[in-house]
């Protein structure tokens, strides 16, 4: 289990744990990002936000937030 920021582009991952506040967790869940969901990293420049694919949409996620979300390679 590693933070999302540790992954490179095109990695498919399963979300394992979210270490963020209730409200933000709920917002992410509505976007389709919650435990056991599969996502894909589209872009990780090692600075700035991450670009991830959740369900059928591209979502930009702040780096600070991505550091607190953990996933595992399938």
């Amino acid at each position: 289990m590693q933070a999302l920021t540790e992954f490179k582009k095109t990695n498919k991952l399963k979300i394992k744990h979210l270490d963020c506040g209730q409200n933000f967790k709920r917002r992410l869940a509505e976007l389709g990002l919650f435990e056991d969901m599969e996502i894909e990293i589209i872009k990780n420049d090692n600075f700035g936000p991450l670009l991830i694919k959740i369900l059928d949409s591209k979502i930009a996620l702040g780096r600070g937030e991505a550091e607190k979300i953990y996933g595992e390679k399938n």
Partner: peptide, 10 residues
């Protein structure tokens, strides 16, 4: 201050 950043790129 810092609030979470998440935005969809349509």
């Amino acid at each position: 201050l810092s609030s979470p950043f998440v935005i969809e790129l349509p």
